[in-house]
């Protein structure tokens, strides 16, 4: 068979396949996957299953949020290992300083307030970005970042004070576990601050595009999750360590 003939048959087959997929073939109706069902369609009543089944894949915002939620849960599991290590080792002070002598609850209270308000303001910034208000989005992220930075400065000055007193991570198993756990959280906050800066830049440069909004949503989830982890830390490490 000559090459030209082969090419012609090949071309015809390809066209037929394209036509089939696009629904141009006679007798075939195209399948619409992304037909939006009206809100609350899954509540229509028994027997009428027009929920997720007829809609095709969930919107990207849902999928992204769910995936990021899975990541956050894996992060919680990472932290649970560090919590467990701290809980097991918190009495192994090897004759060194004990939690009650080292920690300053006033600083911890200020750190906690910073992080809680920061989390709240981050939620406000997310709402502002969903409402497409550039000014309040940027103000919200800015306040979030300043409070997060205040938290980090307080935390690192505490670390510096402890190191100067000779209570570094090498002093005892308790202090190793302490610096690992609290330091890991501080590292997360640092990464969060970098991410926050890029989010502000992205909203500024790219506007309220759907993909940028999705990233903003993920950032807000991350920031709220850090606050949840901090609740565990200030209870487990600071309050339990210093309570009489």
């Amino acid at each position: 068979m000559p090459a030209a003939e082969l090419a012609r048959i090949d071309h015809e087959r390809r066209q037929a396949r394209v036509a089939l997929v696009e629904g141009r073939e006679p007798g075939i109706t195209p399948v619409k996957y992304s037909e939006p069902a009206e809100h609350g369609a899954h509540k229509r009543g028994p027997g009428v299953e027009v929920g997720a089944r007829n809609q095709g894949p969930a919107p990207k915002r849902i999928v992204t949020g769910y995936g990021f939620w899975i990541f956050l849960l894996s992060d919680f599991i990472l932290f649970s290992g560090f919590y467990a290590a701290y809980a097991v080792l918190s009495h192994a002070t090897a004759g060194g300083p004990t939690p009650g002598k080292l920690f300053n609850l006033r600083t911890v209270a200020i750190e906690t307030a910073f992080l809680l308000i920061s989390s709240f303001v981050c939620g406000m910034a997310t709402l502002a970005s969903n409402a497409r208000n550039m000014l309040w989005t940027q103000i919200g992220y800015c306040v979030t970042g300043v409070l997060g930075l205040g938290f980090l400065i307080l935390e690192f000055s505490e670390f510096g004070r402890m190191l100067a007193e000779g209570a570094g991570p090498g002093r005892s198993a308790f202090l190793s576990a302490f610096f690992a756990l609290v330091g890991l959280h501080g590292l997360h906050v640092t990464v969060g601050l970098l991410w926050l800066g890029t989010m502000m830049a992205q909203f500024w440069a790219k506007g309220f595009r759907a993909d940028v909004l999705r990233r903003g949503m993920c950032f807000a989830l991350f920031w709220h999750a850090l606050d949840i982890i901090w609740v565990g830390i200030f209870t487990n490490v600071y309050l339990l360590g210093t309570s009489p």
Binding site: A37, H39, A41, R61, I62, T64, F68, W69, M217
Partner: peptide, 20 residues
């Protein structure tokens, strides 16, 4: 789906962090 619309409320699920 229109890329410029936030796609909330159109499906049976919500993402964590979705708001009304």
């Amino acid at each position: 789906m229109n890329q410029n619309e936030p796609d909330t409320g159109k499906s049976g699920d919500v993402a964590p962090g979705d708001t009304g």
